[in-house]
Design a protein around this nucleic acid. Sequence first.
DNA 1: TAGGCCATCTGGTCCT
DNA 2: AGGACCAGATGGCCTA
Length: 400
Amino acid sequence: MLAGIVHFHREEGGSTLRSGLGSPRRQNNELGASASSGAAMLTRLFSDPSLIPEVQKFASWAEDCEDDDEEDDNSDKEDGGGSSHCGLQDSTHDSSSVSGCKDDGDLGADDDDEEEEEEEEGADEAQGDRPKKRGPKKRKMTKARLERSKVRRQKANARERNRMHDLNSALDNLRKVVPCYSKTQKLSKIETLRLAKNYIWALSEILRSGKRPDLVSYVQTLCKGLSQPTTNLVAGCLQLNSRNFLTEQGPEASRYHGPGTPFMHPYGYQRLPGAQCQTSSMGGAHPLRTHPYCPPYDSLYGNASPEYNSSEYEGPLSPPLCINGNFSLKQDASPDHDKSYHYSMHYSGLGGSRGPGHSLVFGGSGVRSGVHSENILPYDMHLHHDRAPMYEELNAFFHN
DNA sequence: TAGGCCATCTGGTCCT
DNA sequence: AGGACCAGATGGCCTA
């Protein structure tokens, strides 16, 4: 019951109160004015005869929200119910709005102490028949308490803002590591999450099966559940191109990746306006050179070492695959290489070489990636293991 | 202009 | 009491 009333209050009076704030970006010092408009709305609300029953219920608890300027023996009253809301209500409603919470419907009255006192008494009488509520007696809402409550609310707002900013920062980082990233065409939050989920799933499938993904199914997996615009964007990023697909099966692949190279990613990427991590596109740029939008390893990790240290892996993520990034799954000469796979994921970008790039290592010691071809296709994978037979099989698979 | 997306405020709930 | 988290509500901005 009370919840319904409160909900009603929030939808009507409460929302209007917030609308009084205008843009949420306005400063909190407009709270006073907004509270006044909230009071006006409450006045209108409570004057509506059809709402009187609800208003009366509402007033039964709202009366505890009274400011304690008056010398009334308000402190002796028992809570009429639902008083738990009053403290917070008071934090946003000024005393005038609260004074409107009367069961006589005269809600447009000024915040007159005498009038309030009179109405308080009336409310007290109305409560006379009710059983006294148990529990701790509600404290008086003194001005000091009101002030503290307002300050608390403002601090909570600031924390909430910071929290959302952190969340958005995390989302931005996530945007950078999903296959399609454009500064000018940012994925929405929900699309970012969906694409990230699909991407993880796709990579998991690659790891699980150890096979090169089917081109179409790979794209379908990435775009599963995405909106049409996002699907178009991802498709554009991936630039499904059968020519690249076939070309990379050719001798260049082995030339660039050596005998240990299992296969290269078949999907090229098309440059988008403002897109990050543009492909070097055979331009002679080092594949690990990052695009201006793609911070190099150094800047990403604040460390010149390209080694990936899981214990230090807290900084901004580098995309294992961005719009034209590389996904390297490379063979490694490390003594540990037979224990685990080593997946190195690199950017490729415009411009010259800028260091070794970074790598992500799964399950093994971080081993520096070998030199990648400047002519590398944007999405290559190197297996840590000696899996040449499998790669041949995979290559054959893609020729099917 | 409608709809999508976003930032912000707000109150409720849970936990410390 | 206060912080974290959440969901609802709202208004602004942008785009088709």
